[in-house]
Write a protein that binds this DNA or RNA. Sequence first.
RNA 1: GGACAAUUAGCUCAGUUGGUUAGAGCGUUCCGUUCACAUCGGAAAGGUCAGAGGUUCGAGUCCUCUAUUGUCCACCA
Length: 905
Amino acid sequence: MKKELPKTYNPAEYEDAIYKKWEQSGFFNPDNLNLPDTAKSYTIVLPPPNITDKLHLGHSAMLAIEDLLIRYHRMRGERALWIPGTDHAAIATQNVVEKKLLREQGKTRHDLGREEFLKRVWEFLKTTQTMILHQTRKMGASLDWSRQAFTLDEPRERAVRKLFSDMYHEGVIYRGVRVVNWCPRCQSTLADDEVEYKEEKSKLYWLKYGPFVLATARPETKLGDTAVAVYPGDKRYEKMVGKKFMIPGVLGEFEITVVADRAVDPKFGSGAIKVTPAHDFTDYEIAQRHHLPVKQVINEHGRMMANTGKYAGLTTKQAREAILADMEKMGLLDHIEDGYLHNIAVCYRCGTQIEPIPSKQWFVNMDKKLKHLGGKSLKDKAIEAAETGQIEFIPARFKKRYLDWMNNLHDWCVSRQIWFGHRIPVYYRKQEMTKSQIPIFNEIPNSKSQTLNKGSGTDEEIYVGEEAPAGEGWIQDPDTLDTWFSSGTWTFSTLGWPDNFVKGKKAGDLDRFHPTQVLETGYEIITLWVSRMIIMSFFALNEIPFEKVYLHGMILDKHGKKMSKSKGNGIDPLDMIDKFGADAVRLSLLMGNTPGNDAKYSEEKIASFRNFNNKLWNVARYIITNYELRITNYEFNAGELTLADKWILEKLKNLIKAVILDLEKYQLAQAGEKLREFTWDDLADWYLEISKFEKNKEKSQILNYVLENLLKLWHPFMPFITEAIWQEMGYDRMLMVEKWPKSDAIASFQHNKEKFEVIKQIIIAIRNARAENKIEPTRKVKAVIYAGKRKNLVAEQAEPIKALRTGIGELEVKTDGQKIAGAIYAAVGEIEIYLIGAIDSEKEKARLEKEIDNLEKAIKTAEGRLANKEFAAKAPGGVVKKEKDKLKGWREELKKFREQLGNIK
RNA sequence: GGACAAUUAGCUCAGUUGGUUAGAGCGUUCCGUUCACAUCGGAAAGGUCAGAGGUUCGAGUCCUCUAUUGUCCACCA
C-alpha cells in the first residue's frame, strides 16, 4: 500500500483526534489492558495542580515526564496507572477568590458570610479546573480519567475525616496552645513554610530594665515580659540567675524571673534578653523550659489587649510610639541604635508582618510512639524509610535535604482559620465559640499539650469522629485543615482508602496499586508535600507511599528567571502547542534536562524540536510513499542483506538496549538523545540515502521494521506524531498499546557494523577533502583508493562511496600502489585516498598541514603517556595496548601526510 | 550562619563506577535546492572543562581550599 502525505507534519490535524481515540479506547485505565494476573503494576499519582490558576510550563514538564514513564511501562506490558486530580490549595485559593471579590465588588469574605463565600470559591474553581483538565489533555497525558480525584471531593473528605479521627484517638493529634505564626490580615495561622523573611533596617532600643540594660527591637512587647534570660555561666549575670526582680515599667512595676538559657547569644547586645513568651518563638521555648508564665498582650488583629491599660486598642506600631514616649519621660530609655539590620517575618501570601501569638491549635505529634508502627513514631518511620533506601530519591542528593528536615521536625500545626478547606471533624458542646476562635489568655497555664476539657478552664465536651455526633447542641470546629493534610493522603485516598482497607488488609485498587512506584514532583515541595505523604501513609497503612521520588527542576525563562505572572515572562503551554505541536513542547521539556536541575527555556528550543518532528515525519513519508507497508511477519534472509542493512539493524539493536537502560535509570534525556541521533544521523542521513540506490528485496522489510521499532521507542516521548505515522502506515491497532521492542529479536551484526563505519569514514574524508579544496559540487572527480587489507570491502562498497555526495565519477580500488603526485590526499587509518585532477595546491597544502598538526599533537600526548614507566606498569593491559595501537596508527598516517605534503611543494 | 547545587564552545546543556584527539542542539562561516524533508543537505571554525592545590600511571570526573551564581533551611531579642 502506497499513499501520499503532506511535506510537513501538521500537529493540529492529528492531535485532538488521536487523543480522543486513545481516551475512547479505554486503555488509559489498566483494567482494560487485558493483562495477565502476573503483570506488574506501575503507578504514578499525578501531583495535583492547584486550582488557583491554569497550568504553566512547569506543569507541562511534569506531565511530559510522567506520561513518558507511564507510556513506557504500559508498552512493556505492565499495569500502568496514572491517576489525575487537582488540589483545592486552601489558603491560596481562598486568597485568590477574596482578592477577586474585593477587586470586582469591593467586598470581603465577611460581607458575604461563610456559605455564600464558599459558593463563590466553588464557582471559581470549576472554571480553572476545566481549564487545567483541558490543558492536560492537550499535552497528551494518558491519565486514567475514570479515577480522577480532587483533594476536596467527597471520597477525600471521608478519608480526611477518618484519618483525623483515627489520629486523634491514637493520641497523634492533640489540641495545644502554641505560639503560632499569625497573619493579622489573613486572620489565619501560617505554617513555618508559609512564612517568608524580609530584611529590614530598623531601630534597636536599649532599655533600662531594673538591674539590666538590654536591647530590643519591639519595646511594646515589654508589657508581656515575664522573665530575663542570660547565657548559662555568663559571669556578668551569674549571681542573678534564679532570682526574681521587680522591674519598673510604663504600667507600674512587674515581676520577672532571671533564667539561664543557651538560646541566648552572650555576644549580642548586653548579653541579657527580655522574655516575652506569648509573642516570640524563642521566648516561648525558653518559657517552656523554665516553666515561666505566658502573658498575651497582643490580639489577633495586631492590637494591644485589654490588659495593657491605656494602650489597649492601639496597633503594635502605635503602642510602640506611645510606650517609647512614656519611657523617655520616665527615664527608662537608655539609648537608641539606628540602622539595625534584621529579618522580619512576613506572610507569604500578602506580605503582612507576622505576629507571633499564643493560640489553641490542632497539632500532629511526630514523636508519639505508636503501637501499630512497632513502637516507633511517625518521624522514626519517615526517617527510616529514606535511610534504608526503601524510598529512593532521584537525584540522590535530595535524600539529605529530606533527612535534615525530618530530623529537625517539630509537631505540625494542621488547623487553619480559613473557610475553604476540609472542616475539622471536631465537635464541641456547651461552649460558645467566639467568632475568631482565638481565645484570649491573660495567664496561660503551662502545659505542652492539653485537651480542651481540662486545659484552660473551659467546661466543654469534645467529640472527634468521622460523622457528627448525635444529640443536641454540638457545634463543629469552625477551622479547616492545612491543605497538605489532605494532599498527604493522595497516594492512598485516590486508591479507595479507607473503604479498601478492612481490618488492616488492603483490598481492591489499594491492594493492586499501593505503594506506588514513583512520585515525580518538584524539589521545592519535598518538605511540604513529599514528607507529609510519607508520614500519612505510615499512619494509615504502615507502608511507604512510593518507592522512588523523582525530582524535576524548575523551568526558568531564557534569562534564568523564574516564570511568574507578575513578571509577565511566563509562556502559556497552549500557545506553544498551537504553534509547534504538543510533541515539540514535550520534547523540549524532556531534552537537555536532568533531574533536580533547573532548565532555561525559550521558544527557539521548541522550534528546534518542531523541526525534528518534521524530520521524523519525512523519514516516515519517504518510506510510506516508496515502499510496501503492513508487513506482518518480518523474516530477514541474512544472505540477502547488504552491509548497510546489517549496519542499521545492529545500530537498532544497540539502540533498543541503550534506551531501555537509560529509561530504567530515569535518564530520560539521555535516552532521547540516543533516539534523536539514531533517527537523524544514522537513519535519515545514511541509511535512507543508501536505500535510494541500493535496491534489494529486503529493503522494504528493513525500512518498515526499523521505522516501526523507532516509532515504538519514540512513542513515550512524542505520542502524537508517532501514533499519527503509525496510522498512516495503515495499522488499525494503536501504537499506544503495542509491545515495547526487544533487542534480542534482532540478530547481531557487530562485525558488519564496524566494516560499515570504515566506509562511512572514507566517504566523510572525501567530502571534507573536496570541500576544503573548493571543488564545485557538480564536478565529478576520479578517485584511487589503496585499501590494504580492506581492499575487498572497499571494492564491494564502491556504489555507496560514489553515490553519497562524494562526487566520485571513476573509482579505482587497489591493495596499495605508488603515491600519486598532484592529487588530493586523504587517509582513514591505513587506507589511502587520492582525488585526481582537482587539486587547489594552496588549499590542499593548508589542509594537509592542519591534519599533520592535529596528528602531531595527538602523537605527542600518546608518546608522553607511553614513555611513563609507571603507566606501563600500573595501567591495565588493555588500556596500554589500546594506547600503543593508537600511536602506531597515527604515526603511519602522519608519515603519509608528510610525504604527500612534500609532493605538493 | 548552615546545607545543597551550578561553573564544560558565542548561547542552552550532556558527559553514569577515573582510561580514544571532551560531545550535542542552537548560533556563526563556506558550499548546495532533479533528491522524503530548506522546519533541509554537505563541510568547517570554535573549549588551558571557574581558579589554586592534592590523590593517581592517568582527573571534566575523586579530595581540599577559593571565587562567582543560584536554591533551600535556620535565625538575630
